[in-house]
Computed example of a mutant assay.
Amino acid sequence: MEKKSLIALDKAGLERQSEFRYRLRRFLRFGEEAARAAGVTAVQYHLMLHTQAFPGREWASIGELAERLQTQQHGVVALVTRCEEAGLVRRKENQEDRRLVEVHLTAKGRRCVEKLAALHFAELGNLAEVIEAARASAAPG
């Protein structure tokens, strides 16, 4: 992690940071509850979402998913196994590099991701408002 100089925050800066953290936690809780209502865990939803994160392809590797989920590869392997058993994803050997395992959504997984992503979109807008307000108030001028 790069070392950055610390910025002293005034009361208003602390309030903005608190509001952001509060809204972020609300967004995360919303996601947890929405995923549960759809019959998956939040981390299963995140794994499925991240399979669609790379332009030009419809899959992600175990290593890429581990990075996106900020966890260890062996944990992702176990999560993929659980998602596979639930019919949400399937593994496929990469044709160019047989050591690489591709994780693809199934039709069931795609329906689940599309439904949950649509629900998250409006909530994400609320979080974006807080970020923009914080940026605007911190901008020089």
Rank of each mutant, 00 (worst) to 15 (best):
R110Y: 12
V113Q: 06
G141L: 11
M48T: 05
L9A: 03
A38E: 13
V76L: 08
K108Y: 04
A136P: 03
V77S: 09
G56Y: 01
E123T: 01
E93Q: 13
Y45W: 12
L14A: 13
A38C: 07
H120C: 10
V130Y: 08
D10T: 03
L88K: 10
L6G: 11
E19D: 15
N126F: 06
E67A: 10
I7Q: 14
E84G: 13
L69W: 13
Q95C: 07
Q70E: 05
A138R: 15
A86V: 11
A60G: 10
E15Y: 07
T51R: 10
L24M: 11
Q70V: 00
A35Y: 02
F27Y: 13
A38H: 11
Q73F: 03
R110K: 15
E32K: 09
K115A: 14
L100A: 01
A12V: 14
G63S: 15
E96L: 14
M48P: 04
K11S: 14
G13M: 01
L24G: 04
R98L: 08
D10E: 02
L24C: 08
A35H: 02
R25N: 09
T106W: 03
F27H: 11
T71Y: 07
T81W: 08
C83E: 06
T51C: 14
L24A: 13
H50Q: 11
T81C: 01
V89F: 00
V113G: 05
V77H: 08
A136E: 15
A107M: 02
E132K: 10
V101I: 12
E123Q: 11
W59P: 01
T41E: 07
T51P: 10
Q73G: 12
H46T: 04
Q52D: 05
I62R: 06
L24I: 05
L14N: 15
Y22F: 13
L14G: 15
S137D: 11
K11C: 06
L6A: 14
G87Y: 04
V40R: 00
K11W: 09
T81I: 01
I62E: 04
L6P: 04
C83L: 02
M1H: 12
R26V: 09
V113W: 07
V76S: 09
L65M: 00
G109K: 03
V43F: 07
H74V: 03
E64R: 10
T81N: 09
V103A: 02
G87V: 02
G109S: 02
E33N: 09
A8I: 14
L100H: 07
I7G: 05
Y45Q: 06
